[in-house]
Design a protein around this nucleic acid. Structure first.
Length: 276
DNA sequence: CTACCATCCTGGTTGC
DNA sequence: TGCAACCAGGATGGTA
């Protein structure tokens, strides 16, 4: 499931293929994903050169030289596949095809169709409906313990649920919320408002570390795979708690056993011995 | 304002 | 073997 590290990996994989290239054709094989494609999406995209590709939260942004920005989100099952030989048969759920002037194609495949693709002037990106509520990126200096505890102050919901709130901090999804809390030694059940001081000071670097490790793992596997992909596979072996219900805690000293609970309809994995 | 829940969707797995 | 039930989860929109 694409969270920040997977989206970052996809952006890094797409950059050498798309930056500086002209999008000669945009093929929409259906009328929508999670939201309808804008009526003028094709007209605004075709013939445009891609100036730059970057990530904002879990969104992929392709800045076009004409001033527009293509915005893509992978949802939960989206992938971007780089296809060098266009005779490669289309797959089920290849919904959008970006064709470049080199002949290389990028195919946006999304079985569950929770992803999206839209376009907006780059200058209006941060005020766009999809972007204006977004909090700080956890990998930037803007994300500090003081900022985090201020945002959590007074909140009665669990810290786990709070970390998934993109207004607080972006890019953290279910898996990395679990992993970050484990690394910081904080119980996912703890009231968000009580995460301050030393706990906030531990959580911020824990989030950073987990995300950076995952990016590093994704980046290294990218060299072996021609196409970037939002799929799991490379970092899952490094998960300490996620998906490990019943296993011994990785700390090896406190004899805890990883437990699974449901919070807000989503699975949370944690060690009751190490996380308080 | 916060909190909580249902909803979107398909594929993979489990259970009978 | 076949099929139904269930689960996975990012974001949003509605309700309390």
């Amino acid at each position: 499931m694409p969270e920040l590290p997977e989206v970052e990996t996809v952006c890094r994989g797409l950059a050498p293929v798309l930056e500086g290239r002209v999008l000669t054709r945009l093929t929409l094989r259906r009328r929508d994903l999670r939201i309808p494609f804008p009526k003028d999406l094709v007209a605004r995209t075709e013939g445009q050169r891609v100036a730059r590709i970057f990530r904002r939260a879990k969104y992929i942004v392709m800045a076009l030289e004409g001033g527009d920005a293509l915005i893509a989100h992978l949802g939960m099952s989206g992938r971007m596949q780089v296809v060098k030989d266009k005779t490669t048969p289309l797959e089920t759920h290849d919904h959008v095809i970006f064709t470049t002037d080199t002949g290389v194609e990028v195919r946006f495949n999304d079985p569950r169709r929770f992803g999206l693709l839209t376009i907006t002037p780059l200058a209006e990106l941060e005020s766009h409906k999809l972007f204006r509520h977004l909090g700080p990126d956890p990998l930037t200096d803007a994300f500090t313990p003081a900022l985090l505890s201020a945002a959590l102050k007074g909140r009665k919901t669990s810290i786990k649920a709070a970390l998934l709130d993109q207004r607080l901090v972006v890019g953290v999804g279910n898996i990395y919320a679990c992993e970050s809390l484990y690394l910081a030694g904080i119980s996912p059940k703890r009231k968000a408002g009580t995460v301050a001081g030393a706990r906030a000071a531990a959580l911020v670097p824990a989030i950073r570390k987990v995300l950076k490790q995952a990016i590093a793992a994704g980046g290294s596997s990218l060299r072996d795979h021609v196409q970037p992909s939002g799929e799991l596979g490379y970092f899952q072996h490094a998960w300490k708690v996620y998906g490990r219900e019943g296993e011994s805690c990785a700390c090896g000293t406190r004899k805890g056993v990883v437990k699974r609970i449901v919070q807000g309809g989503r699975s949370t994995f944690f060690c009751p011995e190490c996380q308080t």
